[in-house]
Design a protein around this nucleic acid. Structure first.
Length: 605
RNA sequence: GGACUCGUAGCUCAAUUGGAUAGAGCACCUGACUACGGAUCAGGAGGUUGGGGGUUCGACUCCCUCCGAGUUCACCA
């Protein structure tokens, strides 16, 4: 379904073959290709089992006659063989070399401008505590998907919603007021988000103490949770906030300011950024009118003074959209902000929410509601739902103190990169400053790649001890291959400058019988050749993992090539030039693919 | 209880969305011109794809059922 250009060339030819051989029509999307398995000769394979009805023959004769037809009529099909119902095609070297030439001349991972505008919302933190491991998966996914969509030719708006109001931040504010003694990030040396998080914990402690006391006086636990003075005070503070009480607002602005400074430091280190910020304190009033409008249209209904939507026909439930006192719920503002965004960006083609799968139900409901309100764009809303990140000890629980802090984790990964680097790297002559930058790059690559190589929708396990690997299927492995290739290319440039126009005749005259490409070379070219289709797929599925895995396959194949085939040591100039060109194409595709994942690659390490 | 996800080598993950003998990495063993950079490469061992049934020329993939894990179903956010 995501065809590369060779497949695009072959599909019509196969259709033609069916027409002239069997007088039968075959739909293009039913003709699927796969890479030929390494144990057979060939480059691409067509499975003919699905077409036996059309051909009226058995698998082997069908495959045989299609093979003959393709060989006779398609220039690049050089030979074929048939194994059971599988038709293996050998594609001429000429074709692969032509492609490589192109990959040298232009970026194969940048598609033409589509003119489509897409918004990706990710991160969406609460302002009462620091970012943690879950946010890292969210941010890396959102950032990578944004870049993938950009590479696919779209204009992308990266948006962050900041949940800056509500009872959670009031809890931190109140605890700071009571126990903080004027502590600030400056006076404590704590990052702003850490400081505010500390008072959120303080609140919880005090709250629990009060509950316990009330329980000893004979109250039930439920009653105590509702009556504890400190929670009543926090609720009162929230009311004051809503009434625009100047003192509360000033404190709120001050503490949120600390948090933003802290978040920004983390975002900078993570290497993610946003084009557009939405603050919940400004958007939480939205949606009410849209809901009332829906009541008029008869899409929603009133019951006991509240507004409801009935989604039972869609396999969902009934849901309150406005309480009987007329106030909003969370869903209300999500309805409002979605509508506002499409007003703000009239050409918006897609809106993607990167949010964990615990909100699957919420988004199903939201999208259903917007469809019912009649918005044409409702079909272009996507929930990029990702699974939880578990720890070996189980779930992250803030109450049990098992939350993995984002800053701490990055620090740990960078430290590990430094430890490994100091043992292995060949950078003795390099400045301390440059080394620090390098280890930062490597540590983050390890972390990002680890989180991105897994299918987003799947729940995954993060073992801090095992995850800091720098070997094998990891980000640093890809970086290492890139750096080594760049080093090779630098030498090549000094010793044997290669005009790219010479690449195509690197193997001399290429006839259909001339199999000059070595298997190691051929494998690398084929992986490069598949790259654009992988990007297309990643963009369509909003899934960086396929791209991440393919990048690994590519550098792995390149390493095999590098290890077994001489490049600079090759004495035949044409072959040497060709291999230098292959290396250059691999390096630039690797760099570009890693960019799509939000990962930097070093020139040396 | 209803709804949705998921279960693949000891561990962490793949498998072109129904195709050939289910592939990688880690860990474990054995090797590699005194390296075009060894954070590499070559090889070995490791599987009844949670169990059972069904559909199909063909099932890790689709259907049924059982077992196990997670999430979710507030006039919370």
């Amino acid at each position: 379904m995501f065809q590369d250009r060779l497949q695009a060339l072959l599909v019509p030819a196969v259709q033609q073959a069916f027409a002239s051989l069997f007088n039968a029509e075959v739909a293009a999307d039913r003709i699927t290709f796969q890479s030929t398995r390494p144990e057979f000769e060939g480059d691409v394979t067509i499975n003919v089992f699905p077409f036996l009805k059309q051909s009226g023959k058995g698998p082997e004769p069908t495959a045989q006659s299609i093979g003959e037809h393709l060989q006779a009529n398609v220039e690049v099909v050089e030979r074929f063989n048939v194994v059971k119902g599988f038709l293996n095609l050998v594609i001429a070297d000429r074709y692969w070399l032509g492609f490589l030439q192109e990959a040298r001349e232009k970026d194969i991972l940048q598609f033409p401008i589509s003119g489509k505008k897409v918004m990706v919302e990710y991160s969406s933190p609460n302002t009462n505590k620091p970012l943690h491991l879950g946010h890292l998966r969210n941010n890396f996914l959102g950032h990578s998907v944004s870049r993938i969509l950009q590479a696919a030719g779209h204009e992308v708006i990266k948006a962050q919603v900041i949940n800056d109001r509500g009872i959670h931040i009031c809890k931190s504010m109140l605890a700071w007021q009571k126990f903080g003694r004027g502590e600030t990030p400056e006076s404590s040396g704590l990052k702003g988000d850490k400081l505010v998080g500390k008072y959120y914990v303080e609140f919880d402690k005090a709250f629990k103490r009060e509950i316990e006391e009330l329980v000893t006086t004979g109250k039930s636990k439920e009653a105590a949770e509702k009556e504890a003075p400190i929670i009543l005070e926090a609720q009162d503070m929230l009311r004051k906030w809503e009434a625009n009480d100047p003192e509360v607002r000033a404190l709120w602005e001050k503490m949120n300011g600390w948090v933003y400074a802290g978040f920004n430091a983390t975002y900078v280190r993570m290497g993610v950024e946003f084009d557009k910020l939405y603050y919940e304190s400004q958007t939480y009033v939205l949606g009410k009118n849209d809901v009332l409008e829906g009541v008029k249209k008869g899409v929603f209904y009133e019951k006991d003074g509240a507004v409801w939507v009935d989604n039972t026909n869609e396999g969902l439930d009934e849901k309150v959209l406005l309480r009987s006192d007329g106030t909003s719920v969370y869903m209300t503002q999500d309805i409002g902000t979605a509508i506002k965004r499409f007003e703000e960006f009239p050409g918006l083609a897609q809106l993607i929410y990167v949010v964990g799968n615990e909100q699957d139900y919420h988004f199903k409901t939201l999208f259903t509601i917007l469809r019912k309100l009649g918005f044409a764009w409702a079909s272009e809303l996507h929930h990029l739902s990702y699974g939880m990140v578990d720890l070996p000890s189980g779930k992250m629980k803030s109450r049990e103190g098992t939350v993995v802090d984002a800053d701490d984790l990055i620090e740990e990964m960078v430290g590990e990169a430094r430890a490994t680097g100091e043992q292995l790297s060949k950078l003795d002559a390099v400045s301390e400053q440059e080394k620090t930058e390098l280890y930062e790059m490597v540590g983050l690559a390890a972390l990002k790649y680890f989180l991105l190589k897994v299918d987003p929708k799947k729940q995954m396990l993060f073992d801090p001890a095992a995850s800091i690997d720098m070997q094998g299927h990891t980000g640093p492995f890809i970086q290492y291959t890139y750096a080594r290739t760049k080093s090779l290319l630098k030498k090549a440039q000094a010793e044997f400058p290669v005009p790219s126009s010479q690449l195509s005749d690197a193997h001399g005259q290429l006839t259909t019988d001339n199999h000059a490409l070595l298997p190691e070379e051929r494998t690398v070219i084929k992986l490069l050749h598949q790259f654009p289709a992988m990007l297309e797929e990643a963009a369509a599925r909003l899934d960086p993992s396929a791209l991440a895995n393919h990048t690994y396959e590519l550098v792995k194949a390149y390493n095999t090539f590098y290890q077994t085939v001489p490049v600079l040591k090759e004495e035949d100039g044409a072959k040497r030039n060709f291999r230098i060109g292959l290396s250059a194409a691999t390096a630039s595709a690797t760099k570009r693919a890693m960019w799509c994942l939000g990962i930097d690659v070093p020139e040396r390490m």
